[in-house]
Design a protein around this nucleic acid. Sequence first.
DNA 1: TCAAAAGTGTTTGTGGTACACCCATGG
DNA 2: CCATGGGTGTACCACAAACACTTTTGA
Lengths: 237, 237
Amino acid sequence: MILADSAANAWIERAPTRTPEIFVTVDVVILALRDDDLQVLLVKRKLPPFEGKWAIPGGALRVDESLEEGALRTLREKTGVTNVHLEQLYTFGALDRDPRGRTITIAYYALVPAPLAVQAGQGTTDAQWQSVYALPEMAFDHEEIVKYALKRLRYKLEYTAVGFRLLPETFTLSQLQRAYETILGVKLDKRNFRRRILQARVLEETGEYRLGEGRPARLYRYRADAVAEIKARRLFP
Amino acid sequence: MILADSAANAWIERAPTRTPEIFVTVDVVILALRDDDLQVLLVKRKLPPFEGKWAIPGGALRVDESLEEGALRTLREKTGVTNVHLEQLYTFGALDRDPRGRTITIAYYALVPAPLAVQAGQGTTDAQWQSVYALPEMAFDHEEIVKYALKRLRYKLEYTAVGFRLLPETFTLSQLQRAYETILGVKLDKRNFRRRILQARVLEETGEYRLGEGRPARLYRYRADAVAEIKARRLFP
DNA sequence: TCAAAAGTGTTTGTGGTACACCCATGG
DNA sequence: CCATGGGTGTACCACAAACACTTTTGA
C-alpha cells in the first residue's frame, strides 16, 4: 500500500495533465491437452458483472510487477506451474468491454503439460478445463480472446516446435502427432509427420520405451538446445 | 504489501473503487520508404524526461477512445493520413520504462505511402524521418519498439502482401521489388520476384505506363479484393 | 494367434532457385 | 546510337504429398 501510494503520488507530482483513469488487467488463456481435446482453463465468476459466467483467469496488473510477471502470477495461482510456454497474445481495449469502467487487458496464452490439477481462486466459485471447441457463454470479451489464442497457436504450430509444450517431458511420436492433429483439427500422415519432425532435429530419443497396448513406443524429449523456430519451412500446410 | 495485494484483487471483483495507478499510452512506429531507405517518423522531446531525445509519436490513451482510435489519432496528428496499414505490435510494460511512474504502452506500427510531410506536435520541437538502420539515441524503450516493428514487418512481408502499403497507389514492379529489398535487406532475383508476385494475384495492371529514363514501365495497383494473406507459401525465403 | 499400436520407403508432383539476354524509350 | 531501366523463360533440385505393409508386444 505504501509502495502503491508513493508511485501514484509520483505521477501526480510530475505527470503534467491528468491522473490515470484507465484500469489495466492481465488475463491468461491457459491451454492443455486432455483426452485428445484441446482445453482451456476457465473460472466461474462469483460476483457481478457477469456473475456465474465463465471467464479466463486474470486480474488487475499490480503496480510493482511487469506484464509477464502478472501473467505468471495468474498462472501460478491457478495451476501452480511456472515452467511453461507463456507468450503475450494481444491487448484488448474496446470501450465497452467492462461495464464497470474503462479497462484494457493484456492477454497472454500459456501452454501447460497435460495432467494438471486446478484450483478455484478467490472471486470464483469453480475452475474447470473446458474444450476450446465448445466454449460456454463467457464474461467480457473472453470468448474472443480464447478464439484468438487458438488461431495464434495453430499458426505458430505451423512454423515452430511449440507443440511439445503441451506434452509431458517425454512422449511418443504418436502422442505428438495426436497433439498436432487435435490442435490443427486435421489428420496427418504418420510417415510424413515422423520424417519431418525428426528432420527438424528438435527431438532426441531418451532410449526408453513406453509400454502399452501394442508394440512399445520410443520415448522422445524436446532438445533443450534446439532452436524453437523451424526456420526452413513451415511444418504443416 | 498485503494491503496493496487485497486492494488490487478487490477491484476486479467489484466496481472499481480506487484510482488506477498505472498510466496507459499508445505509441506508433510510423514507417515509410524514402530514397530507397526504410525510415521511421521520430519526434524530438521538448520536456523531461529524455528532453531532447528522439521518440516515436504517441501519448496518453484517452478514456473515450479505443486503442486503435488512439493510434489513429496519433497518426493523424503527425501525418494527416488515416487510410494506411495500422496494426497492433506489442504491449511494453517494464517497471522502469518511464521514470515518472508506472506506464505501459500499447505499440502500433503503421505503413504509410512514401511522400508525406510531417508536423511537429505539441511537446515536441522537431519531427523527422530517420533511417531505421541508423537510429539516434532514443527516449524510453523506443529503440526496442522500433526494432521490434522492423522484425515484425520483415516477418510479415514473407507471407503477406503488406509491402504495397509503403508505395503510392500505383507503382511499378521494380519499385515494389526495391521496397522488398530495402526492407528485407537482401537482393532479390528480378524474374523470380515478378513471377511470384504476379502469381500471388494481388496486383492488377492499371494499363498506364510510367515514363522515365529507360523503357516505360507498367503501372500496377493493389487489388482491393485480394486476400492479404498469401496462404499457399511464404513469398520469400 | 490375435489385437493393437509402432515403425518404415518409394514414387510423383510442385514450387524454389539460379541464370543472361533482348526491348523500348529519351537524349 | 547509346545509355537506362523494363521485361522475359528454362533447367535443375529439393521438399511435400500420397500411399500399405511389417514388427513388436500383451492378452
